[in-house]
Write a protein that binds this DNA or RNA. Structure first.
Lengths: 344, 344
DNA sequence: GGGGGTAGTGTTAGCGCTAACAATTGCGTC
DNA sequence: GACGCAATTGTTAGCGCTAACACTACCCCC
């Protein structure tokens, strides 16, 4: 008797028939239209429940031109930072009733970013978050004419897509001031890769803070975020006479540097103070526990979704906008009072 | 003149008109149908290129009943293991031309897993990968009657969804045999949370290997994967007389344990050998570098997608199936020859 | 030279939903 | 008591695509 004898899941018409209304009324109930009599609504809801009906979102997307899906393009989601940001984004998006479709890139070239954005556009996403911490990727966004709103995370550059980022420079400033406050004459720096905006922000903050305090600015070393590059930097810094404090651009490199110092018999913080950046969960249990800067990735995710959805739902291009999330210094054992001047 | 004067993106009919064919022929070209004349195909492709046409996947999904999207339900993607698995899954899925929609759960209760699967089903995904390393989540899959194929990762339990997992027990066996081979009388164990299948696998492997070698099996301690719980375990183990070797169920807890030993002045590996599990990128730079077990998460991701797609594309329920990825011992400095018997 | 294939192409009919409009009812108003 | 208006519900027409079938050439073969 029913039009749904087969195994095929029920459609709106099945619900309508069971409730004795038109399919349009079912649609109205589902979309919370005001003009539906309470009793009718109840009847429809009962029928929906009865049949286990779930509406077909592909059909809905076809007619509304909205998929309720957001895309995320991210660099290597295996790393703590991107993974945490992605997590924050996903939580915020789902809380707002959106699906999240991701593309994770091994390398962040402009070409691949554009390709990823197009891939997601094809899928019909309503908006895209690009976690683009490298200059190359960030500039790719500038040349991108996407039909859907795009928000950049850690890729902010005036005049491009709206951006959310952590205040890297201020985090670096806090580290430097903390170390200078402990009596260190100056602070050396192991920077991240030069084309990373985060690395640049930390480098700038470090340099400005030293300059502001009237201290000498040593030549920074450059690593690639990996523990190994931190280890290498550590071996080199160990030979610098008079060095008493190092600010390493991320915790993983700081780990490598601590390892190098241990191998060389240099005691931290007695001889040299060390600070990192990120506050990965492991940092508290390094040898010694690492003074570092905590980034609130969850907040970054939430803000990026907030900005993106405002644009998706208004349908307008709201222009450039920047949101900066503060960073917070976390002091642990790896930083201590300056050693008495030592001549090497 | 054109039917696409407006701002609206071109549709198949626009392409058809420009190429002087029917929209169906355009569809044939797009779907690689064999019966299209070469010259016609070229004309259509030129028109597509000319208009910048991209087909509407929502419309396609509506009629084909396939979205070319796969869903992933995962536990806290901030952790190295889940993040790496997710990455592997995403790479494999995208290589196969599928989109990946994710749901990341803070806690892994049966209820939340079911909810996540339904959320993804609503979206019309063609298949779902559930990273379900906890018993509660794995059993939720058993009671799940999803309309789409589901594959479990690290959640294998005979009779349920097909599963892909790393050979945890064999990894643990390798660790134990390595340590016994170094002359240790027995090996203590700091296990992961009891409801985690991975923790259980490692515990079993450890116990069996000791039993097989005719060694005493000490009472295992239980942590929660966090460095802090490893630290706590370290403090307790430091009081055990005669202890010379510890196998910790993951690298993060091993880090905490190493920290505790350092604080207590216990030297590794001279006094006590330590081994972990996971081989996180940091492990090589612990103090000392950690002997551990590497899991090939990329392979896990690839295999899960392979199994899932086989089911999605055949449309049949192919029954239970299990795929086990081998684990590999990585020997570093934290394990060494047994100390001469010491009486505490 | 007509039957029967087989490319190659067009025509038609939906997929399941929402938007727009039409129809019906009930009520207050003068 | 006819009129206007609001509330409620139904009807119709697509959204852009693919599947199924129809049609036209053209070729091969006996």
């Amino acid at each position: 008797m029913s039009s749904n004898d087969g195994r095929r899941p029920p459609v709106m018409a099945d619900v309508a028939q069971l409730a004795g209304v038109s399919h349009q009324t079912v649609s109205r109930v589902l979309n919370d239209h005001p003009n539906v009599r309470g009793e009718t609504r109840d009847r429809v809801l009962a029928a929906i429940d009865n049949l286990g009906y779930r509406r077909n979102l592909a059909a809905r997307a076809l007619v509304t031109r909205h998929s309720r899906t957001l895309g995320v393009v991210s660099f290597d989601t295996t790393l703590y930072g991107p993974a945490s940001t992605l997590y924050g984004i996903e939580q915020a998006a789902r809380a707002a009733g959106y699906f999240v479709s991701i593309v994770s890139l091994k390398t962040l070239t402009a070409e691949l970013v554009v390709e990823a954005v197009e891939f997601l556009s094809d899928q019909g996403v309503d908006g895209i978050v690009v976690v683009a911490p490298q200059r190359s990727a960030a500039s790719a966004l500038a040349g991108l004419r996407s039909h859907v709103p795009v928000v950049a995370v850690e890729g902010g550059q005036a005049g491009e897509a709206p951006a959310v980022s952590v205040d890297q420079a201020d985090g670096a400033r806090q580290v430097v001031e903390h170390l200078l406050g402990l009596g260190h004459e100056t602070v050396w720096h192991v920077a991240g890769p030069t084309d990373w905006l985060e690395a640049e922000g930390r480098l700038d903050g470090w340099r400005k803070a030293l300059t502001a305090a009237g201290r000498p600015v040593p030549e920074p070393l450059v690593g690639d975020w990996s523990p190994r590059s931190g280890y290498d930097a550590g071996r080199r810094l160990a030979e610098v006479p008079g060095l008493t404090a190092v600010f390493v651009a991320n915790d993983q490199m700081a780990l490598g540097l601590l390892r190098a110092f241990t191998v060389l018999g240099i005691r931290v913080p007695e001889q040299i103070s060390v600070a990192g950046f990120d506050d990965i969960p492991e940092a508290e249990f390094f040898n010694p526990p690492l003074t570092t800067v905590r980034q609130d990735f969850g907040e970054v995710g939430r803000r990026s979704i907030e900005i993106l959805l405002r644009r998706v739902e208004s349908g307008a291009d709201l222009g450039y906008e920047q949101s900066v999330v503060p960073a917070r210094l976390v002091i642990r054992d790896s930083s201590g009072p300056a050693a008495r001047a030592k001549q090497s």
